[in-house]
Amino acid sequence: MTEISDRVPPPAPSISPEQIKAIPVRHYGRWVAGVVVVGLLVLIGIAFSNAKINYSVIPDYLFDPGIVAGAWTTLYISVLAMLLGVVLGVILAVMRLSSNPVTSTVAWFYIWFFRGTPVLVQLLLWYNISLVFPVLNLGFYKDEMNQVMTPVLTALLGLGLNEAAYMSEIVRAGIQSVDEGQTEASHALGMTQGKTLRRVVLPQAMRVIIPPTGNEFINMLKTSSLAYAVQLPELIKKATDISSTSLAVVEMYFVACIWYLFLTTVFSIVQYYVERRYARGSSRSLPPTPLQRMRKYLRMFGSFRRPEVAR
């Protein structure tokens, strides 16, 4: 790191010493562990391949139009519910931290209720909301509640409102992690509470907020399968529908799992790069990308290559 550029460098020694060429420490334990792991994997693979599962149908159904449509529904309901959760979560977190006792109490009760009851029950409650409000009357818009509450809207409300309770706690932790000096500096410059929150506190809180939010999103991708119970045609519902006619029950769940794994993998990668974006300024250099890291791990595994010379 350059400190002050105009500093005179110390006089270089006249003879540079010989580069060290030592034999690196051998990590035999790593090789043993690697062999054990591979052995176990082979055993599990053999067990699964001898099971009474008809693997050959999996590729046939992997890109079945119904399955692809289900995966698409899973994806968009998760994204929408997460968006609702994040927006409402930020609002709830700010309410909870507010000095206004009314807003902080409201937020507290919201979190208490939505975290304290199962998502499945919340989904079913929204599904049956017409028992409470048979007619939706917004003044300018009036309709039977059963017409309004489509499976998509039911799933969106059930999953999103539940997520908001969790997100608000994550956002609150993030906001509280930002040094108080930041708020003071911002106030001293004449910025209002709202500006301070938007321009100074939240961008810094993001670093703390993003990793658990990525976690929540990946959780959401899978929790959305509960919307099966409110007739949302998502991945699990589609897989079950097909299995009832094709009789390939477990095989269809394998198909669904492949899709879930694909979706979570893609989003793990997205999350990684979002984290990198918000790490700006927090350290002197950005963390390595996965590719860079993979190369490093390969090097670490032994001494296939010559040892890295400290620069």
Binding site: D179, G181, Q182, E184, A185, S186, H187, A188, L189, G190, M191, T192, Q193, V200, P203, Q204, Y278, R280, G281, S282
Partner: peptide, 26 residues
């Protein structure tokens, strides 16, 4: 009100012991 307090602070610069620069900005 908060806005009026902020307006008063605009004319007063402050430098802190721990700098308190915004770390996410250049």
């Amino acid at each position: 009100k908060e806005k009026e307090v902020s307006a008063q602070r605009r004319d007063i610069g402050m430098v802190f012991q721990r700098f308190n620069l915004f770390p996410h900005m250049t």
